[in-house]
Amino acid sequence: TEKQERAIEYIRRLGYSEEEARRILKKANGNPDLAKEIARRIG
């Protein structure tokens, strides 16, 4: 989804690889607090 793409872009800007960014997002899917934090940061 567009939100996922924005989140991946944001995480990659922090210096993670695409693969790492996707792994972090997968974790965020099972972790509402982390997901909220990422969403808050990407606006």
Rank of each mutant, 00 (worst) to 15 (best):
L14W: 05
Y16M: 07
Q4A: 12
E18C: 08
G30P: 00
E37G: 05
Q4K: 07
K26R: 13
R41G: 14
R22W: 13
I42S: 13
E18Y: 10
A35R: 02
D33F: 07
Y16V: 04
R13I: 08
K26N: 10
E18L: 12
Q4T: 10
A7M: 05
E5D: 11
N31Y: 04
G30V: 02
E37R: 12
A7N: 02
R23H: 13
E19W: 12
I11C: 02
R12Q: 13
S17Q: 04
L25Q: 01
N29V: 05
E19L: 11
A35L: 03
R22S: 05
K36W: 07
N29L: 08
E9V: 09
E5W: 09
D33Q: 12
S17H: 04
R23I: 13
A28P: 01
L34P: 01
R22H: 11
I8H: 03
Y10M: 06
T1I: 12
A28S: 05
E9M: 10
L34D: 05
A39L: 04
L25K: 00
R40N: 14
D33E: 15
N31L: 05
R12L: 12
A35Q: 01
L25I: 06
E20I: 09
I38R: 04
G43H: 15
E20L: 08
S17A: 05
G43V: 15
N29D: 10
E9K: 11
A39P: 02
K3C: 09
K3T: 13
A7G: 03
R23T: 13
Q4E: 11
Y10K: 02
R40A: 11
K27H: 12
E18M: 09
E18G: 06
K26G: 08
G15A: 01
I38G: 01
T1E: 11
R22L: 10
E19V: 12
K3Q: 15
E37N: 07
R40K: 13
S17T: 14
L34T: 06
E9Y: 08
Y16R: 03
R41A: 14
E19H: 11
I24V: 05
A28I: 03
E9P: 01
L25G: 00
I24W: 04
R12E: 06
K27V: 14
I8V: 11
A35Y: 03
I24M: 07
E2A: 12
E2W: 06
L14M: 11
N29G: 14
R23C: 07
R40W: 09
R41Y: 09
A21E: 00
R40F: 09
D33A: 10
A39F: 02
I11W: 02
A21F: 01
T1S: 12
K36R: 10
G43S: 15
I38Q: 04
D33S: 09
A21Q: 01
I24S: 01
I8G: 01
E18F: 08
E5H: 09
Q4V: 13
Q4P: 06
R40Q: 14
K27F: 14
D33N: 09
A28F: 03
I24H: 01
L34S: 04
N29W: 07
E19I: 11
Y10F: 10
E19D: 13
K27A: 14
R12C: 05
I8T: 03
L25N: 01
I42W: 13
Q4G: 08
A28L: 03
G15H: 03
G15R: 01
P32R: 02
A28W: 03
K27S: 13
T1M: 11
A21P: 00
K36E: 08
T1Y: 11
R12F: 04
Y10T: 05
K26E: 13
E37Q: 10
R41V: 12
Q4D: 07
L25W: 06
R23A: 14
I11M: 09
K26D: 12
K3D: 15
R22A: 06
I24T: 02
L25F: 06
I38M: 09
Q4S: 10
Y16D: 00
R13W: 13
E2D: 14
N31E: 06
E5A: 11
T1P: 10
T1N: 12
E37W: 10
E18I: 09
E5S: 08
R41P: 06
N31V: 05
A39W: 02
R41K: 14
Y10D: 07
N29T: 04
E9S: 10
K36M: 15
R13V: 07
R6Y: 08
Y16S: 01
E2N: 11
A28K: 01
E2I: 12
A39Q: 02
Q4R: 09
G30R: 03
L34R: 09
A28R: 01
K26S: 11
N29I: 04
L34G: 03
A39R: 02
G30I: 02
G15Y: 01
G43F: 15
R6A: 15
R12V: 15
D33C: 07
A7H: 03
E18W: 08
A39V: 05
K36H: 04
R13F: 13
I24E: 00
R13L: 14
R22C: 08
I42P: 14
A35T: 01
G30K: 03
A28H: 02
I11F: 04
K36C: 09
G43N: 15
K36F: 07
L14H: 04
A35K: 01
L34Q: 06
K3A: 15
E20A: 14
G30T: 03
R40L: 15
E5N: 10
T1H: 11
L14A: 03
Y16N: 03
E2P: 13
N29P: 01
E9G: 06
I42K: 08
N31S: 06
E19G: 10
A7P: 03
R41D: 12
A7I: 08
P32S: 08
A39E: 02
L34K: 08
I11L: 05
P32E: 07
Y10S: 06
I24L: 08
I11A: 02
Y16K: 03
R6D: 14
D33Y: 08
A7L: 06
I38D: 03
R12D: 00
I38P: 00
I8R: 04
I24A: 02
I8P: 01
R6G: 10
G30A: 04
K3G: 13
K3R: 13
